[in-house]
Design a protein around this nucleic acid. Structure first.
Length: 139
RNA sequence: GGAAUAAGCUGUUCUACCGCCGCGGCCUUGUGCCGGGGAGGAAAGUCCGGGCAGCGCAGAGUGCCGUACUUCCUAACGGGAAGGCAGCAGGACAGAGAUGACCGGCUGACAGCAAGUGCCACAGAAAAUUAAACCGCCUGGCAUGUUUUUUAUGUGUGAGGUAAGGGUGAAAAGGUGGAGUAAGAGACCACCGCCUGUUUGGGUAACCAACGGGGCACGGUAAACCUUACGGGCUGAAAGAUCAAAUAGGUGUUAGUUUGCGGGGCUACUCGUCUCCGUUCUGAAAAAGAGCAUUAACACGGGUAGAUCGUUAGAGGUUUCGGGCGACCGGAAUCCUGGAUAAAUGGUAGAAGUCCUGUAUCGAUGCAAAUCGGUUUGGGAGACAGAAUCCGGCUUACAGGCUUAUUUUUUUU
């Protein structure tokens, strides 16, 4: 399995991003696992061939662009190297659009970010029971 | 040799694995392979100025905003260069000294309060008017004391003169000296200062120098209003240009349907179907035509999402020649050097080198303490900081290294 991370795996559509960050929307599922808050959406109608992902680092928390770039690059690498389980699962049973929000107060090393990303992905891989039920009903 | 300050330059390197974004080539046309490229001196702050784009625009004045010694450089600037003036500290020279002129350095919103208006607390007699008499100084008058009357002199009181002295203040209406006077005073004189003139000399100019004239009318504040001179349209790449899916919607043409709506009939009743009439306008007319509605096809125009351009070859870099004190300008040769857009230029691991520091050991100097250098082995540091339309500046941040200058200190000769 190649560990590539091309444009089609990144979330670029402003409408989808707006949908993800819309407050109180019932479509958006969310959980917190240090240092990430994760927002994600299941698109059952026409799921993309790859899950689309974005990483966000708060400008309020990190004033300097250099720091934000560093954190975002580390997160991206962690996702790129550990995404196999998510990608290989069938498109209908995985989140289609995911946003990772980095919420820690200080810059963490890759040794911290990578295990956290593994845990997060593991949690994302589990299909929530509510969705599972609706899928069986449909089929 | 050390330290400090200022200015300029530089801003670690290599390897492995896995990636990201452009470009070129190849084919088997695909998450393909190969090649080559990919952050800065400030990319930062967004403080000035321009290019570029759109909109606006008869001319003049006023207002508003900005700039402010001079000349030059520049596309332009509030930037830069050179010069002038003022201030500050320093050096060396002359001199007994005061001081003088010279040298380089640093600093200066450095036009105008002698156009007008305003303000100047407290203190002080008085804060800008033809200044002003608190103490003081001087001259008379009166009263009174001392002294033998005169003379001289003390005290008190009131009048006049006086800006030299004291006192207040950040600042008291030219300064110093002389002469003069009852005491004083630019009332007079010398020098300095100030104002002013010159078809005088130097300089493009700011300005400097020289020679005259004027007793002198000048407090501070323009980062107070203001005056003078010069400059300034507004917006800002989310500018702007082109293409334009699906769905919806607009206009037109052609063709079709009279379906739709209301009422009546048919039917045991409901729905449906069928049938008849009516329904907007023209028209005498349910003759005919047009319209409304609706379906289909075609065409046209606008335009959302999105895409492309704008967008990286430029007031471009490097070398060199010539001009200029310099900023800079001109010629020639040569090079192509980020172009992303929810935003690439990386992540991880290892090694080397640099600096700081500790251990052990060797060598040199030394009585020693210690200093210097080499080897070994640990630990730490590696700054400031990430292009978002592009340039020229300014400002701010910056570990370590290199160069230059100045100051200071130490050692040797």
């Amino acid at each position: 399995m190649k560990q590539k991370f091309g444009k089609n795996e990144r979330l670029c559509d402003p409408r989808l991003i707006g949908k993800l960050f819309k407050r109180g929307s019932s479509d958006v599922q969310t959980f917190y696992l240090f240092p990430f808050r994760v927002l994600y959406i299941y698109d059952k109608e026409n799921p993309p061939s790859f899950p689309q992902v974005l990483f966000s680092v708060s400008k309020k928390q990190f004033k300097k662009a250099v720091d934000r770039n560093l954190i975002r690059r580390r997160c991206r690498e962690a996702y790129r190297l550990n995404k196999q389980s998510l990608v290989t699962s069938p498109p209908e049973s995985r989140p289609s659009y995911i946003a990772f929000l980095y919420l820690a107060k200080e810059i963490t090393t890759y040794d911290v970010i990578e295990p956290a990303m593994k845990q997060t992905l593991k949690k994302l891989g589990k299909v929530p029971p509510a969705l599972l039920k609706s899928q069986t009903d449909n089929s």
